[in-house]
Design a binder for these strands. Structure first.
Lengths: 250, 250
DNA sequence: CCATCGGATTTGGTATACAAGCGTCAATCG
DNA sequence: CGATTGACGCTTGTATACCAAATCCGATGG
């Protein structure tokens, strides 16, 4: 270490600051290009959330690379991406391992998420437009429809959509980004929650209240609803989660 | 794309979940081993916050690699890390560029940070121990000493320490991690704020109030102080920041 | 049964090669 | 004269080979 430092490095090859010329163009519809590492990361992400790769599974670079048809280089970069999301753990010289969430980790995650949700609600009430409210209202009703006909997958999808919209309505790109990152982390847990009828009813009712609060632009109230809403979800998840800790009781 | 997919992938080389055997050992004082990409990332981070690499600067892989004495592979992984922190921007086929924060980005960052600070305060009041309070109190007094003798660098350092302690006292590892990440992002801005005497006095006073609120374990009050405290900081930063937008008014 | 040792395996990092994308600049065309 | 096109060089994206160091695992011996 410390090979080439302590050098002034006043000026070298890097071109000086310059204006972004991409935005000067006609803002063409970007062909949604993506890099291989992101693609790999997305695949692995999916494999993890679908339970194809269980918590604690060790990810062998070569084998996984062969399996996915990519070389080690982009695969390693994909690992960094996933590690940044907190989905895998990178231990020096020991490689990557699918992260094993302790009960405390789950609690922590939901605690932060509930805080972010509350923040979203607060800000959303300040910035939301009538159109956005209308859309959120519509999605909520669709969601309640799913609830009425016991369509759990549909309910999940719309539920997610509603919360995303509220988050977007907050008008803070960073908040949206952080929210998305944390969501990816706990998304796999969501599916595992056992939803008894009572809890589900309650959750649905709360969504009605959310819309009311949003309509009234009552940030404090919306924040409070969102927070407790998510914390209940946390309990449901914890109930359903078979203790993953090595020490078992049976 | 789509080379080796659609394959069942029921079972392959990856070893099944297993218990972490490292923790079984005597929990030896980890020699704090680190990987090259993290080291590189840290260096670049520093170069960015110190203003050695200006916003918008394009990062050439080969040149920068030679300059830092590393090959492209770990450098590219370092780029991913920095991109995850939001310090650089990675555009496919166009490489890395030091991120250029718009005024809105700064506003967004501080808004989220203020929310996280508030969350920290709220939780800290629930979990903080007497020892932690004592330490935070002590640090605050040291900080006020720096304020009294106009020692701005010392003030910054201790200020940072106080806020870190409060965050830690919240007892939520994820919160600490997210907080740290966002802090890295805006740290470079902090230095640029123009601190007139009045604002500085006010900030110092608020720190006294923070300690009071913490002592009384008044989470709501502490949260509120922290939030407004940081939002003021945001204003100070925005005042001091020469508009970086391409379009200038002079 | 536990600790230790040694070889096989894996990761971390470097170097090299090459295809494809991007930027530039000049020649060409309208 | 201005805009478009095309060729060239540079940079990034990915693959591959290679090696050192660390880890893992099984065998051996106390």
């Amino acid at each position: 270490m410390g090979k080439g430092f302590g050098i002034p490095m006043s000026e070298f090859d890097e071109t000086s600051p310059r204006v972004d010329r991409a935005s000067a163009k006609t803002a063409a519809a970007a062909p949604e290009r993506t890099t291989l590492p992101s693609t790999i990361a997305e695949q692995l992400r999916q494999m993890i959330t679908e339970g194809e790769l269980l918590a604690g599974t060790r990810l062998n670079e070569r084998t996984l690379g062969v399996r996915l048809g990519v070389s080690r280089t982009p695969l390693r970069e994909a690992f960094r991406l996933l590690a940044a999301d907190g989905l895998i753990e990178l231990t020096p010289n020991r490689g990557a391992q699918v992260v094993r969430l302790s009960e405390q980790d789950i609690r922590d995650s939901f605690e932060v998420m509930s805080g972010l949700e509350a923040m979203s609600g607060e800000l959303a009430c300040r910035h939301v437009t009538a159109d956005e409210i209308a859309e959120i209202k519509a999605l909520t009703f669709e969601m309640l429809a799913c609830h009425a006909r016991h369509d759990l997958p549909g309910y999940y999808r719309l539920n997610r959509a509603v919360h995303d919209r509220i988050n977007r309505a907050a008008g803070n790109r960073l908040l949206t980004q952080v929210y998305a990152t944390l969501n990816r982390r706990i998304q796999n847990l969501r599916f595992r929650s056992n939803f008894d009828r009572d809890k589900w009813n309650k959750a649905a009712r709360e969504h009605t209240e959310m819309v009311e609060a949003l309509d009234a632009r009552d940030g404090t109230r919306l924040a409070s609803i969102l927070r407790s809403h998510l914390l209940q979800k946390c309990d449901a998840v914890l109930d359903a989660t078979v203790p993953q800790t090595p020490a078992r009781a049976d």
